[in-house]
Design a binder for these strands. Structure first.
Length: 563
RNA sequence: CGGGGCGUGGCGCAGCCUGGUAGCGCACCUGCUUUGGGAGCAGGGGGUCGGAGGUUCGAAUCCUCUCGCCCCGACCA
């Protein structure tokens, strides 16, 4: 591609409203432009990146037997009523000229299951993996960070159909293999982490996370361990709690309602306190969740232990069922107590609210002073230990997820098959998503430096940028033209900066755009008989290449050795 | 949905408080010079100041309403 003919609007300055690195550099390097909140255009260079990611995904999906198709973005709302997903807030709704209700698909479970329900009748048709790369519409409450969270985006979503859980496990394992290879080939630093299966149920889920500062998720990492903080479990550092005593005793704590206030008033470490978190479940049960004062309740784990959704109890509910807010505790409370495992696993005389205004209890011992059920209901903290190793927490972008759906969609949509005995069963499904735009954004975030982007070779807009110095018609420009033709003849993925611009501008633009290999051909090249070669990673000066009939081939060899 | 901020040429901004013919840098166009790290000189084009209404002799500037965008939080099958 000749840069003189390319729409590549690079900017010297960052857009004023941009925060995330991938947003700033995506715009500055001329890859993306905004049309509205969460609505982005991929300019030619950016679209090449997107397409390269797509190509990797297609290869790996096809390799596990996935069959590509294409389903509509606009869908009858009726279909979504059958699965109940028409009630989701993020659904874009519209109607046609006849008043028929339509939605923009946020994923394609409904559509694909609808078709499979009609097209698959026999166990002989299973297993099946179908996928497509198609737009998704989501009315996000808050689009953000350029292309990271948008209202319209392309997703690779695939769906597996099996006759039973064992089959699903196989399809799931195949996807893990394909996804591992996709993210590896894309050149990302990535983790496959266990994730929350959500209220929709399902028997297993993983997320693929790419660590980077702009990420919206947090992952807990230790050697040999990776999990979303939503589900991560680890051993807590020991609480600094006084030893067990003979009996609990009341102590006045006037006005001390928060953990910090109580800890300060009693001159104890916050970890010696029991934090009471009363909740009311969707089913109307009131439960007192208890965690250490220095820990936080994990709402995902709590929901999973409770087996249903919940909300924090209101002050009125707390007052009427337990005691004065700020001074509540498990002792004497006439509701079930869920005690976090980190507390249950350590002996001590804990501090808890006395259920009496301006008083707390010292020396409280679970079991002796109150009955409880123990469960892991807290969020892991930096420094917790798993497998003997301390955990660290890192921000990350979710670039993919895989999910065992079971019969969540096949049952409401009537997707069944007949087995060898003629018995009808619901098809067991899995769904698997990847956001190519997020892969591109994560690659920018993970590989940028002060000069711009340093693309992984596999998804760079071009693999090589040939920078031609000197003005049109000069001998050095003619030599560059020749080299460009030779590179093209060899099938090189090359961008040719043939613009009539100064060297500084060309170098800056090349470093901003971030093609892995930069070849410079100027007057000096003709004098020395060599081409200057720079690797984008670290702006490393590489061995010069002789300027002769073999230059193009040597450039490609050099490229092949780059990561 | 709560909180905060911003809308002035393609991009980044000043002007607004204290009303009086819309400005700067970059980018763009023409010419000449220049060509190894975002060039120089000269000339030039482009903006109903987000929109509507109001106050006023006069509104980018003051008032009211409205739309859009960004950030933090909540939310994110």
């Amino acid at each position: 591609m000749r840069m003189s003919q390319l729409l590549l609007p690079t900017e010297r300055e960052a857009p004023a409203d941009a925060q995330a690195l991938s947003h700033i550099l995506g715009v500055r390097a001329g890859l993306i432009r905004q049309l509205g909140a969460g609505l982005w255009t991929w300019l030619p260079a950016g679209w090449r990146v997107h397409q390269k990611v797509e190509a990797i995904i297609r290869e790996e999906m096809n390799a596990i037997g996935g069959q590509e198709l294409l389903m509509p973005l606009i869908q009858p709302r009726e279909l979504w009523k059958k699965t109940g997903r028409d009630q989701i807030d993020e659904i874009f709704s519209l109607s046609d000229r006849k008043g028929a209700e339509l939605v923009l698909a946020m994923t394609h479970e409904e559509a694909v299951t609808f078709h499979v329900s009609q097209l698959v009748r026999s166990y002989r048709d299973l297993p099946l993996i179908l996928y497509h790369l198609q737009l998704k519409g989501r009315d996000e409450p808050r689009p953000r960070a350029g292309v990271l969270r948008t209202r319209e985006f392309i997703m690779k979503d695939s769906y597996s159909f099996d006759r039973d859980e064992a089959g699903l496990d196989e399809s799931y394992a195949k996807h893990i293999g394909a996804y591992d290879r996709i993210f590896e080939r894309s050149g990302l630093e990535w983790y496959r982490v266990e994730s929350d299966v959500g209220v929709m149920g399902g028997s297993g889920a993983h997320e693929y996370m790419a660590p980077c500062p702009a990420g919206e998720n947090e992952v807990a990492l230790a050697p040999g361990y990776a999990a979303n903080v939503e589900v991560a479990s680890a051993a807590a550092s020991p609480a600094k709690v006084p030893p067990p005593g003979s009996a609990a005793s009341e102590v006045a704590t006037p006005g001390a309602k928060t953990i910090d206030q109580v800890a300060a008033a009693l001159d104890l470490d916050p970890s010696a306190l029991l934090k009471a978190f009363p909740v009311v479940t969707d089913g109307g049960r009131t439960v007192l969740a208890l965690v250490r004062g220095d820990h936080r309740v994990n709402e995902f784990k709590l929901r999973s232990v409770l087996g249903e959704g919940f909300r924090p109890a209101t002050d009125q509910e707390i007052t009427s069922t337990i005691g004065p807010p700020g001074f509540i505790g498990p002792v004497g409370a006439e509701i079930p107590v869920l005690l976090d495992a980190a507390v249950a696993g350590q002996q001590g005389g804990w501090v808890a609210g006395a259920n009496k205004a301006d008083f707390h209890l010292l020396g409280v011992e679970p079991g002796r002073d109150f009955q409880f059920e123990a469960a892991d209901i807290r969020s892991v903290e930096e420094g917790d230990v798993v497998g003997g190793e301390p955990i660290r927490l890192e921000a990350a972008i979710e670039v993919g997820n895989i999910f065992k759906l079971g019969t969540r969609y096949s049952e409401p949509l009537g997707a069944t098959f007949l087995d060898e005995d003629g018995a009808e069963h619901p098809i067991v499904m899995g769904s698997y998503g990847i956001g190519p735009a997020r892969i591109a954004a994560a690659a920018i975030e993970q590989n940028a430096d002060d000069s711009g982007i340093a693309w992984p070779k596999a998804i760079a807009p071009w693999e090589v940028e040939l920078v031609s110095l000197g003005k049109a018609g000069s001998p050095e420009r003619e030599a560059a033209e020749t080299l460009y033709e030779q590179l093209r003849d060899l099938g090189a993925d090359v961008l040719f900066d043939d613009r009539d611009a100064g060297p500084g501008e060309k170098f800056k633009d090349a470093e901003l755009l971030g093609c892995p290999l930069r070849i410079t051909l100027g007057k000096r090249s003709l004098e020395s008989g060599t081409l200057e070669v720079q690797g984008r990673r670290g702006l490393a000066e590489l061995e010069p290449i002789a300027l002769d009939a073999d230059s193009a081939a040597v450039i490609l060899e050099t490229l092949a050795r780059l990561p």
